[in-house]
Write a protein that binds this DNA or RNA. Structure first.
Length: 473
RNA sequence: GGCCCCGUCGUCUAGCGGUUAGGACGUCAGGUUUUCAUCCUGAAUAUCGCGGGUUCGAGUCCCGCCGGGGUCACCA
């Protein structure tokens, strides 16, 4: 296997925006391909025209672009095995479908919807009873000639087991009689997933098929098709699911978000990648910040966990805060773009960022923590008094002292401020907490801010004085 | 229900017959921060789902059970 060329694919259906679980599989696809110097391909599986959601294909591109999963072949850039959209490959599927019928690996089925329904009414878990499998080819031909609608079903072996080695699940063995004769071609001439995926993966020379464990049970159908067609099957890797905090399967119905939504919420793509990587994979203590390149280097398809993993937002928060702390101000500033008002001064934002980035968990945390630097807060006298613990008269006197000290400072920096105001506080009769917390509330309107003197420096001498005056006038 | 997969701290996991079962996130406490967060230090948290075996010795191997998940569409 080491010498076979690795090609993986992400093959979403455009029935909505893929959620984080699907994207995690795409990440693994990318990592596997790149680890072996192979190609990562995007194929759109739009064989279900009824559930098509306009705009989802664009979202799929956005997800890849956001995370840096660079595609080597896709519907837009093309590639040697296009087209990469299944709805544009219908003739190919039809050709192989009739081939399959010709070699007796598939057969036409004329059963009505009503008949199929009645089968399920008798037993909700009923498989197709293979009624049309018993038809002679003459009978079938006659019905087709008479214009009866029909589908094509795969003619699975009725006994025995299908055995294969799954890259993450290990040796798997499923009894053939557990699968029923799945429909591979619909009445309207469009293939189902089972046919299309096999043909495309083969034609596109996909070496490794990474997909969710929900596909495990139908793998015998796919393997049967490969064998019937005389094709070498790819290596399968069924990766575990992502579960919600309540241990239920993450799904769009349960409000599972897409990676795009997490990005909107202020999570950096670097952190999202990292987080997804650690869900179902282990490297050192699972808390190191890893770049995509590093992940490519350390990824090992044999070490993918077999357990379903629970999506834990706290870990994402941690990773995100670490990436934010690590990022240079200039870079972080660029990311802040859509999270701050357009009229905020860039240089001032950067100054504040230096102070605030240590306490941010997401990009959304910046604006609320910075807005009082741009807009003078409405501060009630009482809230200042609550912090000062002294009478209004004494508090006014303390503020006057502070103002005169500040006025005399020519080099307005936090060290000087600290030294001078500490001296003033020492003889003020105010405790340090009373003295400085009252000032903090007076200039910011809140009791929690970055270090007081740093805040004053960013506000500037004039604005600081102005805000102190406003509270005692 | 049949079939299949999975089962180590709340969470992600290390562990590949002999360990005081380790780390990280989270939690709690202390220190730093004249606030909070960050940061630093420390602590608690798992009788390895349960019950039987095999073995001198089992989280690690075997069997059964239980629990969770998946699947059984002209959806992917």
């Amino acid at each position: 296997m080491a010498d076979t060329h690795v090609r993986t694919r992400n093959a979403p259906s455009p029935t909505g925006v893929p959620h984080v679980g699907n994207t995690r599989t795409a990440l693994f696809d990318y990592l596997l391909a790149k680890k072996y110097g192979g190609e990562f391909i995007l194929r759109i599986e739009d064989t279900d025209q009824d559930r098509f959601v306009p705009g989802s294909i664009e979202k799929i591109y956005q997800i890849h672009d956001l995370l840096g999963l660079v595609r080597d072949e896709d519907p837009v850039v093309g590639g040697p095995f296009g087209p990469y959209i299944q709805s544009q490959r219908l003739e190919i599927y039809q050709k192989y479908a009739s081939l399959l019928v010709g070699i007796d690996a598939a057969y036409p089925c004329f059963c009505s919807e009503e008949r199929l329904k009645s089968l399920h009414e008798k037993d909700q878990f009923a498989k197709y009873d293979r009624f049309c499998r018993k038809l002679t080819s003459e009978e079938a031909q006659r019905k087709i000639a008479a214009g009866e609608p029909y589908v094509l079903r795969v003619k699975l072996p009725e006994t025995g087991f299908t055995i294969w080695h799954d890259l993450v699940q290990g040796k798997l063995s499923l009894p053939n009689n557990e699968c029923d004769d799945k429909v591979i071609m619909k009445t309207i001439g469009i293939p189902t997933y089972h046919l299309a995926v096999v043909i495309d993966d083969h034609l596109m020379k996909i070496s490794h098929v990474l997909r969710g464990v929900e596909w495990m049970a139908s793998t015998p159908v796919h393997l049967f098709l490969y064998e019937a067609l005389g094709w070498q099957p790819p290596t399968f890797a069924h990766v575990p699911l992502l579960l919600g905090p309540d241990k239920s399967k993450l799904s769009k119905r349960h409000g599972a978000k897409s990676v795009l939504e997490y990005a909107e919420d202020g999570y950096l793509p670097e952190a999202i990648n990292n987080f997804l990587f650690y869900l179902g994979f282990s490297y050192k203590d699972n808390s190191e910040m890893l770049t995509l390149d590093k992940m490519v280097e350390i990824f090992d398809e044999k070490k993918i966990q077999r357990q379903n993993a629970i999506f834990d937002i706290q870990r994402l928060n941690y990773l995100n805060s670490q990436w934010i702390k690590k990022m240079p101000i200039e870079d972080l500033f660029l990311r802040l773009n859509t999270y701050i008002p357009a009229d905020w001064n860039d240089e001032k934002v950067k100054q504040i960022l230096a102070l605030v980035k240590e306490r941010m968990f997401t990009l959304r945390d910046f604006a609320p923590a910075a807005e009082y630097f741009f807009t003078a807060p409405v501060v009630s006298v009482q809230s200042v008094l609550d912090q000062s613990g002294h009478s209004e008269k004494e508090t006014v006197s303390w503020f006057e002292t502070v103002k005169s000290v500040i006025k005399d400072i020519s080099d307005f920096n936090s060290t000087v401020l600290h030294d001078e105001l500490a001296k003033a506080q020492a003889i003020s009769g105010f405790s340090p907490k009373e003295a400085f917390m009252s000032l903090r509330v007076a200039i910011s309107g809140r009791s929690v801010t970055p270090p007081l003197f740093d805040c004053m420096v960013i506000l500037g001498k004039d604005e600081t004085l102005k805000r102190l005056s406003a509270i005692i006038s």
